[in-house]
Amino acid sequence: MRPFVFERPTNISAAVALVSSFADGRAPTQADVQFIAGGTNLADYMKLGVARPRRLVDLNDLSEPALRQIRISDGTIRFGALVRMGEAADRGDVKRHCPLLAESLKFAASAQIRNMASLAGNVLQRTRCEYFRETSWPCNKRVPGSGCAAMEGLNRQHAVLGTSDACIATYHGDFAQALIALDAVVDVEGRHGTRQIRFAKLHQLPGDTPDVETDLAADEVITAINVPFSEWSRRSRYLKIRDRESYAFALASAAVALDMDGDTVRQARIALGGVATVPWRARLAEEALVGKRLDQSAAETAADAAFAEAKPRRHNEFKVPLGKRTLVRALIETRDMKV
């Protein structure tokens, strides 16, 4: 691991100042400086030599109380950026208003990791593509232009949606699927002030520049995640399918929230995990359901729509049928929820 300077600012503006002052007006890069919260993603990648920041800015001593609070008001759940996954997953009111949010956290990682990991860090976690994790392989995301070892290599865990010729790495997070389904908005503070980013705009498709993963600048810190909810988001759930029962990333997952009028769908929110390069909102599937009676065949039609554009590679063909069936099962199970 490259030696680094360690900073422990005590408020947000000091944190932002630390990363802004660092490079004489030049926009800092991730090699200059990175924030660290739980460290469960960043420390891992620093040990692997994938991330090599010269300075780490620890967010854990920031004193603004809101960073550690979950506030529920006026149809919005506001999660402070430093709230730990475990705490959010266990909160009774979150579970009640929006089971999807709690479940997407509960089924992620392990209890220990959830005690460490912050919600902001969670949504910003980087892919677990094996070739990305090991610095001896060519990887366009890690070293732009070096090639993609996964494309013709082992790609069972890779994405079938949102891929490009440069990169097919899956976005592995779970919580982000719930957030994108529910139209969350992220509060950000940086050297140019504060702004809000729609969650759907936070992550960037790989395209020709898989190294650019988010819309955040290196000096921007996430301060909160706002999730609108309503009465109907009680009918929501997160279904995660994996090779083993726990402590594993999704092979496919579905985040579903349904606004039902009897048997008929008024509005559906659907996001898909484990199958796409970024948090993935399945709008075509949602549209296919609106106004329909939600039965097996309507669910299957929606699932077909969700995967119409899928581009599987050699070892991940199974993700297309699996992704579809995961969505069908999630839709039926959500429909049948007693709320």
Binding site: T40, Q112, M116
Partner: peptide, 18 residues
């Protein structure tokens, strides 16, 4: 796994300085 302030965490993913 150790407890930090009573909560279980993974000591390998935490820098000691933190």
């Amino acid at each position: 796994t150790v407890l930090i302030d009573g909560k279980r965490v993974l000591s390998c993913l935490s820098f000691a300085v933190m």
